[in-house]
């Protein structure tokens, strides 16, 4: 298998579509025969990230790259950025509104979950310019 790249536009504030990119990625990873345990890790982390982009960043672009031994998910947005990354990484800390909580999110588990399920995660963020999160998963 050589390198496969999938790119998805994630629409901001569209809660009906939120999760669509992750859902598509899940089906495609299944189609190419990636192990189910790996798929689950990738999808949970990507779904949390996608929800974050919809909720906080007015959408963005999700890129999934599949290589023989590695899956890389890059979630890039041009939103407001994360003011305090350390705080955002803390379980239970959330800046989500009541509306988001009513959807079942905003428990302050997004970034911690992404970190937990990926083998490596980096956050590149600038307040007022946006955030790019890169997650790597070993196959």
């Amino acid at each position: 298998m050589t390198e496969i790249v999938w790119r998805f536009d994630v629409e901001g504030n569209n809660f009906e579509l939120a999760g669509h990119a992750s859902q598509q990625t899940k089906s495609r990873l299944k189609q190419i025969g990636v192990n189910n345990d790996i798929i689950r890790k990738v999808i949970i982390a990507m779904y949390e990230g996608e929800i974050n982009m919809v909720i906080h960043a007015n959408g963005g672009v999700a890129t999934v790259t599949v290589q023989p031994n590695l899956i890389t998910v890059v979630l890039a947005d041009t939103g407001k950025g994360i003011e305090n990354v350390e705080l955002a990484m803390k379980e239970g800390y959330s800046t989500a509104t009541t509306e988001i909580r009513e959807l079942g999110f905003g428990a302050g588990m997004g970034l911690p979950n992404m970190k937990k399920y990926s083998d490596d995660m980096t956050i590149d963020t600038t307040v007022g310019e946006g955030t790019t999160i890169t997650m790597k998963f070993k196959i």
């Binding site: 809660f15 009906e16 939120a18 999760g19 992750s22 859902q23 899940k26 189910n36 689950r40 999808i43 949970i44 779904y47 929800i51 009513e102 959807l103 079942g104 999110f105």
Partner: peptide, 15 residues
């Protein structure tokens, strides 16, 4: 007790 589409998507992600 939640009935929005995200509930189904979550269930789907978790098989």
């Amino acid at each position: 007790g939640l009935i929005n589409p995200q509930v189904v998507r979550t269930a789907l992600m978790m098989d």
